[in-house]
């Protein structure tokens, strides 16, 4: 399969204290087109930092980044802001953990969904943008997309907002979607719906997904491969089956044991 994203020896260090703090240590990853890779680990294990580095959001001056992030043959980690911006929103989309705060409260949904088009397809007509936005909203299984298009974020529920976020991230049909704990703030039934939605989008549009979560049961349902992180290090990686049924490391075993039993029965 064709390789989309390659991360080589990614190191991220904070220098805002006397002793530098390393939050990601020698992270390596290869992601093929159409593949879903899950990164799991407890809070503070560096998984979100890795995601932000790929998305080009880590631009603090007190931070040292080493290594390479190669997206379709282009190095992004040390590229300038304007170079990275070409990719952001167009080839790389991202959805966040908190659907309640990730939509602008004073702008209509449609306007926000269309924003990437306005940036990356400036010659597209207004009607075409509207058509694409409605299509995108329908794609994420929102009922009455024409109505949602004209609504404000406070009129939608958490699950609907997360769908809107996915619609906005997917409107330019990115090759890579980074989902940073997209289900954490939602209740269990909605979580499952969102995961199924991601699965469907992956199959229909061949979007690669980097799914970051600490919910192993969801990761198990969705991902082809899993990377387990702890304290900034990769503990274990392999196909979902391998990691779940023949875990090699003690930490992975503990994580799997920590899945609530009842949920395990249902899934």
């Amino acid at each position: 399969m064709e390789r989309l994203l390659e991360i080589k020896n990614l190191n991220i260090e904070f220098h805002d204290h006397d002793i530098p703090e390393r939050v990601v240590n020698n992270f390596n990853l290869e992601l093929a087109k159409g593949e879903i890779v899950g990164i799991v680990g407890e809070s503070g294990s560096g998984k979100s930092m890795t995601a932000m580095a790929i998305a080009g959001l880590l631009r603090r001056h007190d931070m040292e980044k080493k290594g390479e992030i190669i997206f379709e043959g282009k190095e992004l980690l040390h590229a300038s802001r304007s170079e990275v911006r070409q990719y952001q929103g167009d080839d790389i989309g991202m959805i966040f953990q908190e659907p309640m705060t990730s939509l602008n409260p004073v702008k209509r949904i449609g306007w926000q969904v269309e924003e990437s088009l306005r940036i990356h397809r400036p010659d597209m007509s207004k009607e075409e943008r509207y058509r694409r936005a409605i299509e995108s909203l329908r794609d994420v299984e929102l009922e009455e997309p024409e109505k949602v298009y004209r609504q404000y974020p406070h009129e939608l529920s958490g699950g609907m907002r997360q769908r809107v976020m996915i619609a906005a991230a997917m409107i330019c049909e990115p090759k890579l979607l980074i989902a940073d704990e997209p289900t954490t703030a939602l209740d269990v039934t909605i979580q499952l719906q969102i995961v199924k939605l991601l699965q469907r989008l992956n199959q229909e549009k061949q979007t690669s997904i980097l799914f970051i979560s600490h919910d192993l049961s969801l990761v198990k349902k969705l991902c082809h491969r899993i990377i387990v992180m702890h304290d900034g290090n990769i503990v274990e990686s392999g196909s979902t089956k391998e990691v779940f049924y023949q875990p090699k490391e003690e930490y992975t075993k503990q994580l799997i044991q920590a899945i609530p039993k009842l949920e395990k029965l249902i899934l």
Binding site: L57, R85, Y87, Q88, M94, T101, E115, S116, I119, H120
Partner: peptide, 17 residues
């Protein structure tokens, strides 16, 4: 530093906009 500003930045929106 709100999430929606971050996600706008992620959509490739320029600082001025």
């Amino acid at each position: 530093d709100m999430d929606y500003v971050k996600s706008a930045r992620l959509a490739g929106v320029s600082d001025l906009r």
